[in-house]
Design a protein around this nucleic acid. Structure first.
Lengths: 230, 230
DNA sequence: TTGACTTTTATGTGTGCACATATTAGCATA
DNA sequence: TATGCTAATATGTGCACACATAAAAGTCAA
């Protein structure tokens, strides 16, 4: 007697039928119960397989309407954004950091806009992250101290603001964006590159239950790549 | 009588206990069965909640060893990579494209290396994608025609190679990377920017069951941003 | 024809149970 | 002491079942 199909197997079989064109983009595929009969397994198993395909963006599911093959195929990839120390050591580097600036100060307008805060002094932190003592990334961060009161006593000589915040201040929501920019004078000097050098820029803002915590820009050194599998 | 907790609720409760520090990074959390008793729900429900936390990178699960809070917290975000036409129309633009080059030709060495193919002629496609008739992205693509034989008859005047390949040639594996680069002469001319302008570059290679399909570079217009929620 | 209902249907989710499987821990043996 | 077998254990996964819920489809009266 053969063992019943696992949800892995069912997922692969369903995917094959989608790729083969049997179910074209936009088409509705059979209901869970029918597929369960066809594959000789329980509805639970089919459900799990379909749910995974939905998570991957292959199909779209709606109650009562059924399951349809996504008419506009999208690739979906999961990016891992580790803390910087981890990122550097993962790449085989020896990590260190310097705090360049740490002060309460009024922020530029775009920071208040991003955070949705009134104009009040924010904690401004500028950190240089190094790999093997060579500049790796410049972090320019603004923190809403109300959201993280004990940040003033954080030992930033030992642990970088990046790491401290990730470990000490959880967030419920965040926004991240990736782009390319030219190194301005300040960043160019810190990263030891020419002004105008194309840099990979990551901007990130986090909130806890609606109230803003921090927003930052990370300027990566020349030639930096962020990779992932599809 | 209260209804039993859903896996959503259990997930949130577990997350709260992790954030509160009750279970520190690296610590092992109670076994599924115990949590099920504590929350008054079935092990199935706890299992599902924990599995989701594992998918999100919050905890790490191993058979017999148990479930531990991830000692090196990582943020994980899912990037959606739509087909270009979709991407442009989603941003409110009017999409069009031009094929600039379409020929069988020997490829640069790095292309053969990426694809793991012997030096043979590959299909070289260069496409300019436009939004509201302004240059949006330059796609420089090499295709292994053995993996997609009927590509030679594809109507690229109507549908871009990008879209055609996504819809017609499924892949089982892919690699994608993001970086910043300076516009060279060719790309600068096409995107109508100055040579040296920082551009967002996406490189992508796909395989089907181990055999390479295509590799490409996408040079996005100045100021392009790719965003996502955490 | 419109609008307010009821029914039907497909997915969403919880339960208790059983067995699979990986991995550790303990024990016995050479 | 080293090694190999065995038991214990935590997660992984399948099943039949039940009920919840959203949404479409059908019904019927004004």
């Amino acid at each position: 007697m053969q063992r019943p199909l696992s949800h892995h197997t069912v997922r692969k079989l369903l995917l094959k039928r989608i790729h083969s064109g049997e179910w074209a983009p936009g088409a509705i595929i059979p209901v869970e119960a029918d597929l369960a009969v066809e594959y000789g397994c329980s509805r639970t198993t089919v459900n799990r397989a379909l749910r995974q395909l939905a998570e991957a963006g292959i199909v779209e599911r709606r109650r009562k309407r059924g399951t349809r093959v996504n008419p506009t195929p999208v690739a979906r990839t999961t990016l891992e954004i580790p803390i910087i120390r981890q990122e550097v050591t993962d790449r085989g580097g020896d990590y260190s950091h310097h705090i360049l600036l740490q002060e309460m100060a009024p922020a530029p307008a775009f920071v208040y806009a991003k955070l949705g805060l009134p104009d009040q002094d924010l904690l401004h932190l500028e950190t240089l992250h190094l790999s093997d003592n060579r500049p790796y990334m410049v972090e320019d961060r603004w923190v809403n101290v109300d959201a993280a009161p004990h940040i003033k006593t954080a030992p930033f000589d030992k642990i970088s603001p990046n790491e401290w915040l990730v470990q000490e201040v959880p967030y419920s929501d965040g926004e991240i964006s990736f782009s390319a920019c030219a190194a301005d004078e300040r960043v160019a000097e810190l990263l030891e590159v020419k002004v105008g050098t194309p840099l990979f820029l990551v901007e990130r803002t986090t909130w806890m239950d609606g109230s803003p915590i921090t927003t930052l820009k990370m300027y990566y050194t020349e030639g930096f790549r962020m990779s992932s599998r599809l």
